[in-house]
Design a protein around this nucleic acid. Structure first.
Lengths: 206, 206
DNA sequence: TCTGGGATCCAACCTTCGATTGATCCCGGC
DNA sequence: GCCGGGATCAATCGAAGGTTGGATCCCAGA
């Protein structure tokens, strides 16, 4: 019997998961959490074998932190991330936080249940689309921006002009441009708007 | 007995809605659709009294179009939009398409069921948060971009240059600039990146 | 030790963007 | 029918944005 805790802020999704999982004889849903905090508390209290964790919570504190906290518990349950989006940043964040798997909510039920069994057995379960993305990311050399470059890029994303950024960061606009050149080069683009777009995809920007 | 059609591309959500609604004696789920096209077809075929419609479908054709098509049917069922996000653009699109109500997926079940009963009775049902937003939007001078302007803005957000956009939309860059001038003016900005930033805040961009 | 790479800074060029003005066509409402 | 608004295009010009090149500083490693 696999004992499962569901953590999702949507009552509808919780009901759906429970309905889907109740048909499986070897799976038991032992609790439901509507917030990341509640998830951590219930995970410690109920000590399930697996936590089905949503990444997007309405209070924006996110499921990644909760995943991290749960994985740090004494009887650490496995965490299977179940989310709507397959952006690189989210995936990487979840994996780094210690998730055993990453599924999309539009996955067919049998895939979801197979992933649950795999994760409960200690294996890692990635949706095929996700696995592909991770591989692709591993293949290409790490894209890492310096702190300053990220600061500049954030200002750009907020709609600031080069001189705006220069004033706010107390440097000249020549320097801003210089930082941007490096950002462009690292992200493989050649305009500020494209940089913002790629930055979002990669999870550098929120 | 209220006969309902569920339209959502997530199996989990469909199961959840069905589970929640099955407990209500006067509500019957007569069908489930996983795509907007299927939703239109089943609505015509089953002629339910109400369609629970998701706005975000994976194939990006969107639930708004389906809502419009369903409302144009002979025995037009009411459409209750049920979605994750409360961005202004989505709400307005749904209301314009003829939705009787707009609910968020994180709404508590009793609220959902109350909304279903209200919508089936021909009343309009808005989640309180949504209603507030609509009110606020009505108060401040309408910011509405034309379809073409939104298309251009989306290209800008993706990082395209004016000539890129011109090629993709099969117009000249003079026209692109013209559209952008209007966008800037409507959004109260003076650069493409700022336009993207504001566009995101207003929910025009996703 | 010194050398090379990375981060930060700056300056002089060239290109693109945005403002401005003005024009035509089409469609729907008064 | 006339008017307004959306979509289309053109030409100009100054101001941003992007390119190239070079400067310093610091730290790790040959």
């Amino acid at each position: 019997m696999i004992r499962i805790l569901i953590a999702d802020d949507h009552p509808v999704v919780r009901a759906g998961l429970r309905a889907l999982l109740d048909t499986e004889p070897d799976i038991e849903v032992v609790g439901e959490a509507a917030t990341p905090q509640e998830a951590i508390g219930l995970a410690a209290q109920l000590s399930p074998e697996l936590v089905l964790m949503d990444l997007q919570f309405s209070d924006e504190s996110g499921g990644a932190g909760a995943t991290c906290a749960i994985r740090a518990l004494d009887a650490a349950p496995y965490v299977l991330v179940l989310t709507n989006y397959d952006t690189d940043g989210d995936i990487l964040g979840a994996v780094e936080a210690g998730a055993s798997g990453y599924l999309l909510k539009d996955a067919p039920p049998h895939e979801l249940i197979a992933a649950i069994r795999a994760a409960a057995a200690g294996e890692s379960a990635l949706a095929p689309a996700i696995a592909g993305r991770l591989m692709e990311r591993m293949r290409q050399p790490q894209i890492s921006l310096s702190v300053r470059e990220i600061e500049v890029l954030q200002q750009v994303a907020a709609g600031a002009s080069n001189t705006d950024i220069a004033n706010r960061l107390h440097i000249t606009d020549a320097t801003v441009k210089s930082h941007l050149v490096h950002v462009f080069s690292k992200l493989g683009v050649s305009s500020r708007t494209a940089a913002v777009s790629v930055g979002r995809e990669l999870g550098i920007l929120r």
